[in-house]
């Protein structure tokens, strides 16, 4: 835990922030935020006690708590099973665990049109999703493959 706290900024569950929250390092947020969150190219984890009423912009966004607002994850958005999200998601890849509550729209953004192989829609429908985990897993990921 100490290692984690040394590497990641941490906002505890008793902290309430109203306004603009921005930074240039990874953040673990377990408190309440009302306003906007912008971490540019860094990762955000909203902890199980996190309550966010804000639009969120970060590289990877992982949600354990509750969010009322839109989430933009430059690379990936993950909704854990305890997550409650009322808002839209805009990202390249998404992971939603069974049990997560989501009300809104999901727009999967393509990172680079040239990187995505062209295939007919019917074929795409029948194909195994690119990021699917095994059938026994509780999670399925969708999106386009990362460039190698």
């Amino acid at each position: 835990m100490d290692t984690y706290r040394a590497d990641v900024a941490h906002i505890g569950k008793s902290v309430i922030i109203k306004g603009e929250l921005s930074g240039s390092e990874d953040l673990f947020l377990d408190g309440e935020v009302e306003g906007n969150i912008d971490l540019h190219n860094h990762n955000l984890v909203i902890g199980p006690n996190g309550r966010v009423r804000a639009n969120v912009h970060a590289k990877d966004v992982v949600v354990h708590g509750k969010v009322d607002g839109n989430i933009t994850g430059v690379d990936k958005v993950e909704l854990k099973k305890s997550a409650v999200l009322n808002g839209d998601i805009n990202t390249q890849r998404i992971v939603i665990e069974d049990g997560a509550f989501f009300k809104g729209a999901i727009d999967i953004r393509k990172a680079d049109a040239k990187a995505e192989p062209v295939r007919p829609a019917a074929q795409a429908a029948a194909a195994t999703p690119v990021f699917s985990t095994p059938a026994a897993s509780a999670t399925v990921t969708t999106g386009i493959p990362e460039k190698k």
């Binding site: 989501f102 009300k103 809104g104 729209a105 999901i106 727009d107 829609a121 795409a124 699917s132 969708t142």
Partner: peptide
């Protein structure tokens, strides 16, 4: 969501 976005659509839930 995976299926619908895999078709290139926007999924609402």
């Amino acid at each position: 969501i995976n299926f619908l976005t895999g078709l290139g659509h926007k999924a609402y839930n």
